[in-house]
Amino acid sequence: MERLNKYLAHAGVGSRRHCDSLIAAGRVKINGVRVTDLGMKVDPDAQKVFVDDEPVRVEKPVYWVVHKPPGYLCTNHDPSGRPLAMHLIPHVEQRVYTVGRLDEASEGMLLMTNDGELAQTLMHPRYGVEKTYLVLVAGKPTKDDLQRLLDGVWLSDGKVRAKSVRRMKPQGDSTWIRVVLCEGKNREIRRMLAKLGHKVLRLKRVAIGPVLLDKLPKGKARKLSLPELTELKKSAVSAERRVEKVAGEARQNSDEAESQPATKPVPPRHPAPGAPAGRREFVPNPNSGGKPSSAGPRVYVPKPAAKKSPLARPGPGRPGPGRPAGSRPVGGRPPGKKPFGRPPGRGGPGK
């Protein structure tokens, strides 16, 4: 028995996340019964699984490296009839899809497989699998330009940065640079360099993780060798463990923060018995172990009460200095006095 989403991913239907969306949408059936439980398990030997009423057959996993020329699309269907990267491997019977797309004008390495779990790890930016590119840009980028790529550039969909950048060689008025990314947003390198004022003239991906394009001709494909596949899976597993470790540390820190009290109560200070009047000697904090401070015992001298000024305004109903009692009614104004302020009316004397 294995989880349904894992079974579908191994069958080449898609990544586990994509398979979860298919299950939640009710597009998956087991023995003709629609299932929507994401935790459902399946026995491949005793049960038949269908996606959109089409039987799912577990295929042998295959891994192909393809050198995509410019002008090809990384999709399974194009209404305009433009050439597809899938057309470069017509002899492959399994249902494969591209790992890490390249736009139409770009060229270089594509990894095509039906291993949905491996593809998810290689493509998702949180795992940080490196992709290496050679880029020909207009002009001559300065050291500050290259540093800005490392520090990060703000685009419409957020801040993006390169993991490493190196100037390779000049070519006329243009320059070749080597860029390594750990994520693959749409036309990311082109937009980053355009922000810096350097148009991308040519873009070629030469590596995904430890797998190199090497000398594979344009438009050709080859199977991934066993050592290459082993190294690729090792890098994927290492990336997953790194992400799990970071997530585990974050959870542990969160649990520790919740278990600790928000603030530690401070015990009140009490005057020592027998202290002279006007000078209050306080008992040391019991948390200090009863040890006296290096500055000696703490002494508190009460602040003398402030004297009221004889010119202070009296409160309501209280006669001030030099004023007989009852000369001013409480809460009112002296008789015959008009209130302060502008008289009523619109800008003129009151009527």
Rank of each mutant, 00 (worst) to 15 (best):
H91G: 12
P271F: 10
D151G: 10
P61R: 02
L203N: 07
R202N: 12
K169G: 03
R148T: 04
L212E: 01
L232P: 00
R251C: 08
R57L: 05
P284S: 13
V243M: 11
L149C: 07
L232V: 00
G100E: 06
R328F: 01
Q120K: 06
E231H: 03
K303R: 15
G209L: 02
P284F: 09
A236C: 13
L122V: 09
V13W: 01
H18Q: 14
A138R: 11
A325L: 05
M86E: 04
V246K: 14
L229C: 03
V129N: 00
P70V: 05
L38G: 08
R242K: 15
L73D: 04
K169M: 09
G139S: 03
N253R: 13
Y63M: 01
K131H: 04
G128P: 01
E249Y: 13
A9M: 02
V266A: 11
D115G: 12
K303F: 13
K41I: 04
P268F: 10
V66D: 01
C19M: 05
R342I: 12
P141A: 06
N287Y: 04
I208N: 09
G26S: 10
N76C: 06
R27D: 00
G209E: 00
V58Q: 09
D173M: 13
H67P: 05
P141I: 04
R242A: 15
S15P: 07
A277F: 07
K48L: 07
E104N: 08
D103T: 01
E281G: 10
G152E: 03
N5T: 07
E2T: 11
G331P: 01
V206C: 11
M40D: 00
T263Y: 15
P267A: 14
T263K: 14
H124C: 09
P268M: 10
A25I: 00
H67G: 04
I208G: 12
V301T: 13
G128Q: 10
A11N: 02
G289E: 01
E240H: 08
H67Q: 03
T263V: 15
W154L: 15
T230F: 01
V135M: 01
N31G: 11
A305N: 12
V13S: 06
Y72R: 03
Q252K: 15
M1A: 10
T263F: 15
G315H: 13
S15D: 06
G278Y: 04
S156Y: 00
L226D: 03
G26M: 07
E258P: 02
S106C: 14
G100S: 07
N31C: 05
T36D: 04
K215L: 08
V299I: 15
Q260T: 11
G296S: 12
P271N: 09
E228F: 00
G14C: 13
C74D: 02
E228H: 00
P334A: 10
A24R: 08
D214I: 06
R34W: 00
I89N: 03
A9R: 03
G274R: 12
W64F: 08
G184F: 09
Y97M: 13
P344D: 15
Q171S: 14
K29F: 00
P314R: 05
P319G: 09
S254W: 04
G278R: 11
R17K: 08
P61K: 00
F50W: 11
